[in-house]
Design a protein around this nucleic acid. Sequence first.
DNA 1: TATTGTTATACTCTATAACTATA
DNA 2: TATAGTTATAGAGTATAACAATA
Lengths: 137, 137
Amino acid sequence: MNDPLLDLPGYALRRAAGAMMAEFSRRLEPLGLRYADVSALLLIGANPTLTASQLGRMLDIQRANMVPLLGRLTDAGLITRRPLDGKSHGLHLTAAGEAKLAEARRVIEQFESWLIAKIPAAHRDHLKPALDALWRD
Amino acid sequence: MNDPLLDLPGYALRRAAGAMMAEFSRRLEPLGLRYADVSALLLIGANPTLTASQLGRMLDIQRANMVPLLGRLTDAGLITRRPLDGKSHGLHLTAAGEAKLAEARRVIEQFESWLIAKIPAAHRDHLKPALDALWRD
DNA sequence: TATTGTTATACTCTATAACTATA
DNA sequence: TATAGTTATAGAGTATAACAATA
């Protein structure tokens, strides 16, 4: 079977990302979290009083789509919202949120190690800078 | 603003893939194609008499989800289906499909060159093998 | 028995427009 | 005027179960 897609870096990028995110989601399932939830928890934990809009900009998620995400985390008792002024609300981890984030950090650490280990040593240190050039520049 | 996500290769992979697929989709828009359409056209063009199930396995798309995709390509007059036996159908490009694929190939070529050019030269040759290790092994 | 093509369905993710209230 | 938070909605992508017909 002839597969011309296998020569294309762009296609490899999409398939690799899909495979890795599927694996990451599988590892997060026991925690009852999706990967968007984890990235939000990480940023809220690292930046107390972050607002929903700021968080959305950092994650490149539309304001409107933050609503169900933050609602989910709030319903799960992982975050609270405290008014900063009349229109903004600061996001904060609850004790349960801190605990869940600690669990998530362990999953992340193991997942990232596993991901890196899959890459042949000769190419390993080049992946992160190459990827960063594709989305941060 | 503190962003611990920026240290994670897995996060960079997801964001890079998202950014690149968004750009690729933008470039395909004038052709009236999505990237799944293009990958299907490429594989059908390279493998006459490929069946829908075989194509789905190569693209890692469920059989059921091939139906709307191939229906779209058929409605656009880009492919035809000819019975191979009582239950399988071989997929073939029409003349319009060949022409559209030729256009798509030019878009792909320019896009892939642009993508590669974004990567610092020192890391450039390492990206494809690193990505392949993540989804093909 | 396994596979092909298909229908139906549901869930996730993403994008846009519009509204209210506040800065 | 611009921004924050929200609602509603629609489009994609993806996953599962089930079915009839055929290998």
